[in-house]
């Protein structure tokens, strides 16, 4: 690998990292504005015009608050919990293809940090690791409410990972590859051979299962039982204050961003948009428009996450387990069989 390549990769990583953080910051603002809109309020409007400096004010508050580590907590793990949560949230973006490729001079830059041939499984692994941050933090707090939140997070994550994996298997039967780049390439354009190219039109049931599981894995309402404030004070982050709490909240928004990006890539064509090669534009312009298209899809999904949060009440715990084990898993298995049968008939 040449030095230039290393610098390009490094710059790309920094940009993606910065974008994830900025998107997460403004998701907190957007969440409050969306909530205000749904409840016929105004929402934050004091810091800057329309309140757009609110995330900075929140961040400043988080950093300046007193940091408290409870006396009976295990200090190392208490700090490790939120650190692990934000770490696992950030490393997921490494395999997502953000666009095709830019040609600058003699350099062809792939807008993706790395294209490993087990990309989908990598995302899956990072997601399954995400629960450790919550579990370690909840246990180290040495508080019964935190522990209950941590235990709920663990059982919920494990239960919904199964149906998520099964829904991905049906998708992989269609694509025949685990590389996210190749999956995005297969959904080129919008229409070919008399049918839509985007996977959501080939795997509607799989997408439905996947999005439900994505809600559960990111601990978003209606699946936010680990931090259910009506029963558990604050759930796993009851004892947390200052930026350590901020890391937990931030990790949730980064997870939302990454899972939106994964859903857009796997099912909604990624950086592809209709008529991408009929507009008579150069390659670079198509790539830039593709990146914008991907971000439009991501922002739509983030809005969808918020839309659901402020519309649907939280599940009861037994309903959550029933949905995961008795409805989603059989549906996902039926989806696999259906995909297999249809795939064999129309081969």
């Amino acid at each position: 690998m040449e030095l230039a390549d290393i610098i390009i990769k490094f710059v790309l990583i920094v940009i993606i990292f910065a974008i994830s953080l900025v998107v997460a910051m403004y998701s907190t603002y957007a969440e409050r504005k969306v909530a205000a809109f749904f409840q016929d309020r105004i929402g934050p409007n004091r810091a800057g015009p329309w309140g757009i400096l609110q995330p900075l004010a929140d961040g400043g508050k988080m950093f300046l608050k007193e940091e408290i580590i409870p006396t009976n907590a295990s200090a190392f793990l208490f700090i490790a919990g939120p650190s692990l949560a934000i770490l696992t949230a950030c490393i997921g973006s490494a395999v997502i293809p953000w666009g095709q490729h830019l040609t600058i001079g003699s350099h062809v830059i792939d807008l993706q940090v790395t294209d490993i041939n087990v990309g989908v499984l990598y995302i899956f692994g990072v997601v399954s690791l995400g629960v450790y941050g919550v579990m370690i933090g909840g246990w180290a707090s040495n508080n019964k409410y935190s522990l209950l939140g941590a235990i709920r997070a663990a059982s919920q994550n494990i239960s919904y990972e199964i149906s998520m994996g099964l829904s991905i298997i049906a998708l992989l039967m269609l694509t025949g590859t685990l590389s996210l780049r190749e999956i995005a390439e297969q959904q080129h354009g919008f229409w070919s051979h008399g049918w839509f190219t985007w996977n959501v039109f080939r795997q509607p049931l799989g997408f439905l299962i996947f999005i439900v599981c994505a809600f559960a894995e990111t601990n978003r309402t209606p699946f936010d039982l680990p931090e259910c404030e009506t029963e558990l004070v604050g759930g796993y982050h009851t004892e947390y204050s200052s930026m350590k709490l901020g890391f937990y909240l931030f990790a949730e928004y980064i997870n939302m961003f990454i899972s939106s990006a994964v859903m857009a890539t796997l099912y909604f064509g990624g950086y592809n948009f209709p008529f991408m090669h009929h507009l008579g534009l150069t390659e670079n312009w198509v790539t830039i428009l593709g990146v914008i298209a991907l971000f439009a899809k991501i922002i739509f999904f983030i809005f969808f996450f918020m839309w659901v949060r402020w519309t649907i009440p939280r599940f009861r715990y037994d309903q959550l387990m029933d949905l995961g084990w008795k409805i989603l898993i059989p549906l996902a298995i039926a989806n696999i069989v259906l995909t297999g049968v249809i795939g064999t008939i129309f081969k």
Partner: peptide, 11 residues
């Protein structure tokens, strides 16, 4: 192992 079995152990 890391994502499922050990989470269950910890649980």
């Amino acid at each position: 192992y890391m994502g499922a079995i050990l989470v269950l152990f910890l649980y």
